[in-house]
Nucleic acid binder design. Structure first.
Lengths: 239, 239
DNA sequence: TGTGTTATCTATAGATCCATGGATAACTCA
DNA sequence: TGAGTTATCCATGGATCTATAGATAACACA
């Protein structure tokens, strides 16, 4: 209690925070972390998904592991990585929110690629819940199958975006479709909605994506589809 | 709609996120941003507070400005910096939460320096609100005066930690004291509580600090102290 | 208009980070 | 045990980041 630094938060703390900051300096590491917030993946799958060489991807993952942001699990010859807890996903979400709020470039990219007309009128989670209970809406998960199986909105149909066009005729033009994907920065759902609208279907995007749904403590289904809407009481709508 | 990358969120987005990530690689930049979430400050004050040379601090602030995380304002010869919006503070808070959750080192530092006994039993914001209305508690803001004036809990007394010991006799041993500071990673309030307890006062820390109070949409007073508790209805307790 | 104050810009040497290929390690399964 | 598969470790140029001093710019005020 007698050194001059007693009254200040020590710089040591900020050095620790910078260990985490170090992870999000590199675009590919953010991309990796974003993927890992959707589902666990093998080293090989991560390298392929991000277009990195195996050794490079491994190096990035090691940096994340030193910062304790990812956990690993071994199964046969494969090492599977996953985000180390909800806080990681919340942090990445906060980063995305911040970027969207502060960087005009992000807004522009989003509106250029995912045509921004339908992103302006998104369905809220609360609305989706009640509409699904009423049964007058189809929920569409357009992420890769693997991510759907790792956790999806109960009742949602899995239809990865690249297969949408081939199966358009399965959708009734009278029933509205609500599509969702990885989150506000992901363009899968906006693109799906654009395609659906172009072919005369009623379609909108869900606000945000799966991680936000999970963080709102709403029900999450795992594995292949089972329709379990009725199992959840209205009190589950803690949003 | 015919290039092979159509179905993937473009890497361009992650490059933009990395612009923000770049800010939080460097411990001093995190420290600067943390300070700016408490109150705006002049260039000179920021350099002094972080122990940086003026030119170095300026360089760091420029990097933050390029990432749009800070805004500036000029007054006479001084340039004042401030955090560019609530999202910035939320992001820094998420970083702190993540560090506290994942890095054992952070927990250890916190428990070593601010004796961790009183950090385990903190007062919730809701409890503080009702206790203050009941009038059986003293709220103590132990941050520097400048930060108090930029925004404090209505009814709180400003007493920067370094002056606490000199004014101990002003506190009635019968009335409990609740101290708060910058947030969960700030050690000012825990140290104040330790000092108060050592001298026979009943004292506890508030959970988190001023930024979290603000983000909970609770009332914030500005400038010199005016007791305005009664102005706020119970519905302001949206937490 | 000129002088003083404060902040930013420029240049630079030293440190750190990145991608990559090749070697090594961990582990499975026959 | 040994061959095969997958991930990590190591070494290395090339690029980027950091701190600082000195020069310049922006501005207030007389």
């Amino acid at each position: 209690m007698d050194n001059s630094n007693t009254y200040e938060a020590p710089g040591v703390i900020y050095e620790q925070l910078a260990r985490i900051g170090k992870v999000v300096v590199h675009p590919k590491r953010i991309e990796l972390l974003d993927l890992l917030c959707q589902s666990e993946r093998s080293m090989e799958a991560l390298a392929a998904a991000t277009g990195l060489k195996l050794t490079t991807a491994s190096a990035h993952l090691q940096i994340m592991r030193q910062a304790r942001l990812v956990d690993t699990r071994r199964d046969a010859n494969r090492v599977y990585y996953k985000a180390a807890g909800e806080e990681v996903c919340r942090f990445i979400a906060a980063l995305g929110d911040l970027a969207q709020a502060r960087l005009a470039e992000v807004k522009q990219i989003l509106s250029e690629i995912g045509s921004h007309t339908e992103t302006t009128q998104r369905v809220s989670r609360a609305e989706l819940l009640s509409r699904v209970r009423a049964g007058d809406v189809v929920v569409l998960d357009v992420r890769p199958t693997q991510e759907y199986q790792a956790g999806h909105i109960p009742g949602a149909i899995s239809l990865p975006l690249e297969h949408l066009e081939a199966r358009l005729d399965e959708f009734d033009p009278q029933v509205e479709i609500v599509a969702y994907c990885r989150g506000p920065l992901c363009l899968l759902a906006p693109q799906a909605v654009a395609t659906l609208q172009k072919h005369g279907r009623q379609a909108r995007c869900l606000e945000d994506g799966m991680p936000e749904w999970r963080q709102a403590n709403l029900p999450v289904a795992v594995g292949s589809e089972v329709n379990v809407w009725q199992e959840f009481s209205p009190t589950a709508m803690t949003e």
